[in-house]
Write a protein that binds this DNA or RNA. Sequence first.
DNA 1: GAACATTATGGTAGCGCTACCAAATAACCC
DNA 2: GGGTTATTTGGTAGCGCTACCATAATGTTC
Lengths: 350, 350
Amino acid sequence: MATDKEGARGRRRHRGNNRVTIEDVAKEAGAAPITVSRALNTPEKVSARLRERIDRAVEALGYVPNLIAGGLASAGTRVIPVVVPSLSILTFIEVIHGIQQTLEAAGYQVLLGSTDFDLDREAALIDSVLGYSPSGVILTGLRHRERAAHRLKAWGRPVVEIMELGEPCIDMNVGIDNAGAGACMAQHLLDRGYRRIAFLGTGMGMARDYRARERYEGHREVLEAAGVESGLLFQHDEPSSYELGRQLFLEALEARPDLEAMHFANDNLAAGAILEANRRGIRVPQDIAIGGYLGLSLGEHLTPRLTTVTVPRFGMGVEAARLLLTRLEGRSLASSRVDIGYELSVREST
Amino acid sequence: MATDKEGARGRRRHRGNNRVTIEDVAKEAGAAPITVSRALNTPEKVSARLRERIDRAVEALGYVPNLIAGGLASAGTRVIPVVVPSLSILTFIEVIHGIQQTLEAAGYQVLLGSTDFDLDREAALIDSVLGYSPSGVILTGLRHRERAAHRLKAWGRPVVEIMELGEPCIDMNVGIDNAGAGACMAQHLLDRGYRRIAFLGTGMGMARDYRARERYEGHREVLEAAGVESGLLFQHDEPSSYELGRQLFLEALEARPDLEAMHFANDNLAAGAILEANRRGIRVPQDIAIGGYLGLSLGEHLTPRLTTVTVPRFGMGVEAARLLLTRLEGRSLASSRVDIGYELSVREST
DNA sequence: GAACATTATGGTAGCGCTACCAAATAACCC
DNA sequence: GGGTTATTTGGTAGCGCTACCATAATGTTC
């Protein structure tokens, strides 16, 4: 019964990809392949009776849709590439976590790409991932090669740029105001009565993390407006680490023994500094005050607890994913730009 | 001159996916699409002259291959799903980093999946990612639902199971000997002269991180063999954090004030404990010795520096990716099981 | 119950690429 | 030069699915 017409199974061309196809399910359920497709993708368009038969067939055969084929036919796989500068920076990881959790719950998969802060690699990576016909893309930052930005705009699907906020963006933008965050900590240090304040960071050349530079600019403007020495900057160009924080701390202390406060570009550096201060018996904040940026949980466990500007990294990922999903589901967007905000967490180190 | 036969461009069916296709390149270069395909995938099979013309056309038109179409035709996208239990655990992140860096250099993309330590979700996720016709798969651990393991075996492409070592594995296996690592630290603590030694961990029920349980078993056996109290176990079921380390530390101290050493299931917990000891003025290791597992860089910056069992997390990712690539490139494998090893890093906390 | 709107199913074609095989061309040998 | 063997190129078909349209079944209205 129901002999295979037109050549039968098994005459498959390529190396036996013996997976169950939609056709197998259709036969099993006594329906057309297209109807099976509908039953899976838009169940409300298939009668309950048939749908049930199809579901049973799917179950019985262990059918798993070939998303590649589906993607080719409908020009859109359920993949969202997320392109970040580095996977060794905890911040990006936490953002990715938020993105991944939100997207996976909605049936999308995250494709990971990292650029090592190189805009050319970013452009190449964008080209490459567009080859997967993704449903949308999430990028880090607002600065990209012209070619990449242009291609993404022409592409016409949802694109979210994260981490920073500004004009122009390709499509949607979720981030925080870096200059504001830098200014916020600087203002706090001033309010605390500190006057000789340094900024300590890393990779702040244009090539690497220019967001740290924006924070520095915000910091500098506040100090300048207050009529305080504003150009105290210590920086290296290696990736952030506890070790680098330690080094910056010692260097700054040696170069300017009169410093009252240190504003670190991130909590990793600040933590390295506090840990070194602990080791040397330097009292924080009595001898030197220390402020950070990020809100890593480590900060709350140091002695003294680290004063920092807390940024909802996970939340930023969730929000970016939500924006993307909203657009993918065709719902309209209240705003295509979301300021995720930050919060000054005053603790013991300042 | 060369008018478009058969209906011309622009009669494209779906929503104007106006990307440049291989056909456009072929026309531009005056060759057949299949030849363009060859020029890109197996350049050595195309004459230098033609290849150059094609390369120029690719450049001129900004052609980017549609990997979805290629994947459908040749049954294999250059995607490697990496399935881990959680993205909030630094260890997995570092492993993923190693994998990602190695695979991306070889032109593969990492597809990220997380299971939240749920084997059913893992099985569902495996089904789902197989729908992307990936070139291979990397999984965490050796324990999976029967259905998932069976499906992957039948699938016939490279599969690497990471993090732990053992039998049976689906295909290839890169990891470390957890029981051995636990025993190693226990032995060290004994060698140091400590006798009342506790193990402190988290999520060690079968459902969650059973690798920590294996370390505990290794630890216990060593203590038992030494004729020392061996069942001292403190554990919670929340995810690891500094905070949890702090709590476990205090609980253990209260329950057993006579403890001489604490063996933590990982460095996050151990660091939380040391930081709390710092805060309370409890001397480590004089009052209580503390050992960890992982080799996080934080450990080297604590006071005292943390004695730990260092595991090459990044290296494990690199090795897993290498194994996979070796198989994908058709080269033969020295061994399908790699013990990545660990190293006892004796520092100040024991 | 005829005329229409609505919903449920199926047929066909094609997404863009590459496996397979056939044809054309170049290279080589007595 | 005829015959043989490499090398280079092209034609065809189809990977598994879904967009689009056509048709069939059902419901609704007066």
